[in-house]
Amino acid sequence: MLTLDQIRAFVAVAEELHFGRAADRLRMTQPPLSRHIQKLERTIGVTLLERDNRRVVLTDAGRGFLEDARHMLTLVDTAGDRARRIANGATGTVRLGFTAVSAISMLGALLRRLAEELPEIDVILHERVTAGQVDGILRGELDLGLARPPFDIATLDSRVVFREPLCAVVPDGHPLAALDRPLAPYDFNGLPVISYSPVQSRYFHELTVRFLTNAQARIEQQVHQILTAVLLVAAGRGVALAPASARSLGIGGVTFCDLVRGGGDPLDGGDVAEPVELHVIWDRTSTNPALGRVLDLLPGIES
């Protein structure tokens, strides 16, 4: 069985091509040095060094082994440092879940900041809806998620990292787009509305339902993704509510309109609608040191 002492002995002799100088370099006598080389050659089953009383010469096998032996010693020398860096979170891997709209609002800024401040942490991206992110974290497939509430606070920790207005999305040329004021729920009376799945997109489903509680709107269809809702509006299938960052999707044929909060009269100076929140979520029992380093960066991105 190979030992580090044998590897170090061989490298010293191969580089010095002299047993006496190699022994001095390793601060040992020549007999144990010779025994290390002999045991190494028996273990490998080939002659690495040709030697006599006058000279030491590397065989072809010895020259090939020397390259690998140096690499092994380098790995040993750096392994401890790498382990310490992993333990304190300076290097490692973080598996990050995100939704399509969260990617628009802050994923780019987060990745740029990680690249600048934690360049030795690898971030592996997984696009999943919120339910899929929660499941992935609980299964140990993800370390971190950019997702929408609510969450099971018994197992997950969360923090708000981004807030933005909820807006109406209407087709270009729609009468609502011509109103020079924020829209109230009664503005949607009788209109077909593209809403969201109460299971796959629970958060946006509930935001839509709460805003339109006192309206006589017609829910025409329920979708899973913000992108799908905006595309259906562009196709003239109805109107929808979406976060302001959906403007960055760059879909033509739609207009984004401000909303008043909770149905207040816009003529009374009503405020914008209830904000849309994006949370970072993680397993509070996680033992990944790199996760803590990434979480430390997030407050600076909060908006």
Rank of each mutant, 00 (worst) to 15 (best):
G190P: 14
A215G: 08
R25L: 14
H126A: 09
A273V: 03
D157T: 12
V170W: 09
F188N: 09
G270N: 03
A147K: 03
L114F: 10
F19K: 03
L212W: 05
I226V: 15
R25F: 00
G269Q: 05
N53C: 01
D152I: 03
A235Y: 10
A168D: 09
F162M: 07
V170P: 10
H279A: 00
V169C: 12
V239W: 08
G132A: 07
L48W: 11
R261K: 10
E274V: 14
M1H: 12
H174F: 07
G97K: 00
R84Q: 06
D258R: 05
R202K: 13
G80P: 07
L73T: 08
L142T: 07
S34P: 02
G253E: 12
A240C: 13
D77S: 15
E16G: 01
I86C: 11
R95P: 09
G238W: 07
G190N: 09
K39Y: 02
T208K: 06
R95Y: 11
R218C: 10
T155A: 14
G238Q: 03
F151H: 08
D265Y: 01
A234T: 04
L4P: 00
R237S: 05
A69V: 00
G262F: 11
A131R: 14
L298V: 15
T255R: 14
L166V: 12
A115D: 15
T91F: 03
I226C: 05
R42Y: 05
F151P: 09
G252Q: 09
L111C: 05
A273R: 01
R63P: 02
G136F: 08
Q200M: 14
L75A: 14
V280A: 13
I301R: 02
H205K: 06
N88E: 12
E220L: 08
S245Y: 10
A154T: 13
L297S: 07
S245M: 06
D24G: 01
Q30Y: 04
D283R: 11
E127K: 06
D152Q: 12
G262V: 11
I124A: 08
T47N: 15
E120Y: 02
Q225S: 12
R84K: 13
Y186I: 05
A215T: 06
E41M: 05
R95K: 15
I137C: 09
G300K: 04
S102K: 06
G269S: 08
E50Y: 07
I121R: 06
L241W: 02
Q6P: 00
G80D: 10
A131I: 00
Q222H: 10
L48P: 02
D60T: 08
E67T: 11
A147N: 07
S248V: 02
R247M: 07
